[in-house]
Nucleic acid binder design. Structure first.
Lengths: 236, 236
DNA sequence: GGAGATCTTCGTGAAATGTCGAAGTGCCAT
DNA sequence: ATGGCACTTCGACATTTCACGAAGATCTCC
């Protein structure tokens, strides 16, 4: 899940810079910890090197979100072009290895995404529940490993930052176990996507289970890699 | 470690807002997910309600880090005054319970902090190594639980975002085990603080172990809660 | 259907950002 | 000590932010 790491790292950097008493110093810290000279950063941003220096020295006390975002993105891009050595170093911190087996991808939207748009992107068919809802994120979960490896408290991690999300369970056989797991768990997602089966294969108990927790259920046969890259690539 | 959660949550919020294509929408999402009306937020920020609306509606395309920080902080403060229900909800996501037993506190500085200043705050004595260094963060670790509970790969999590940090091991007897653990591990901190013992009690092998990895070693008898609150309270 | 609370839109002026380029500092290597 | 590289400082000016308050739009709950 490389792209996931990049995004989380970007968020961490941006957050730290934004909250810092001196955003300039924080900016500098990150540039330096990626071993990037001001000049190169300036070149990639297509601005003059003095601009970078002005920010880092604190002449602009409160830089706008736009440049902070651009600078963070550029720092990461430069590292990616060099093979991503620093991103990979930071990646170890972000994802504990346990996550990689269980959570294939996890993402939060900054603004609501319509459920029917979402369904369209992953080519999903509605099994039950309303489609005029909005979600704030999604999680792609390896169904088997989630049930084998997660303790009940760890199970909550699949919800990321909002329960207003879609949980995509991969390679399900009938979809019954994921729905049961959700039934017995305190948090409820807005939507569950069963990946790898056709509408006819969906277990007949599912609409009943889903209705109790007001969850919309979809299914898709798009393969997991395609789902992840389609969702990642989309800007809503 | 309540304060730790607040900080991490603030960082997450600020990062998401800063990186968003429309910071206004992201701001709105967070305000709403804390169930705070614009009017109340405006009042606490001592600005007129239209200011909030202007931000959220996107009239300001790239708000500065200063206001973003202020808004995030105010949202969190309002929730704290209401008993912190939403902060606690998000806290579940930030800290897996496993962390709480092992990592008492973990913090990153946006700009370098001198090691001797740091030592002063926690009333630490130098055992060996140079003090004219700088660190970018610290981690307070329960020594016993760390060694009992952490697998070798999980051990890396104590480094947070930078290895240029101080690792504070609590309630050590001689300090040997923590130093051995660091010796056999790929990442090296700048500094190790042994909490709970006097300089005379420090195991004689320690200077030798520390020198190999160029680590400065300190010790302090300040109690853990005091250390955490002193470090948290300090703005450098 | 109207009172009230919540939110949006907009004109405005002071202040700050965003960018440039020229000139200056400091530190290695040759 | 003469470059060269990395970085800093600064004046200038166009563009935005920031904050206000008045007026309009929505929604909800009698």
């Amino acid at each position: 899940m490389k792209s996931g790491v990049r995004h989380q790292l970007a968020e961490k950097m941006a957050g730290e810079i934004t909250l810092s008493d001196s955003p300039g110093q924080a900016l500098k810290k990150w540039r330096q910890s990626f071993n990037i000279p001001q000049g190169l950063l300036a070149e990639r941003l297509e601005v003059s090197p003095s601009v970078i220096s002005d920010y880092e020295s604190g002449r602009r006390k409160s830089p706008g979100t736009a440049i902070v975002g651009k600078i963070v993105d550029t720092i990461l891009s430069i590292d990616e072009d060099n093979g991503g050595q620093f991103i990979n170093k930071f990646a170890k911190i972000l994802y504990s290895e346990f996550d990689e087996d269980v959570i294939y991808d996890i993402h939060e939207y900054a603004s609501p995404v319509g459920l029917s748009d979402f369904a369209g992107v992953i080519d999903a068919t509605t099994i039950c529940g309303p489609m005029d809802q909005a979600i704030y994120g999604y999680t792609v979960i390896n169904s088997l490993n989630a049930i084998l490896q997660l303790s009940s408290s760890e199970f909550n991690r699949i919800y990321g930052w909002s329960t207003e999300r879609a949980l995509i369970f991969t390679e399900v056989s009938t979809g019954k176990s994921p729905m049961v797991a959700i039934r017995v768990t305190p948090f409820k997602p807005r939507c569950v996507v069963l990946q790898g089966i056709s509408p006819e294969q969906v277990h007949p108990l599912i609409p009943g289970l889903a209705e109790r927790d007001r969850i919309s259920v979809l299914c898709t046969q798009m393969d997991v890699e395609t789902i992840i890259s389609s969702l990642r690539g989309k800007s809503w």
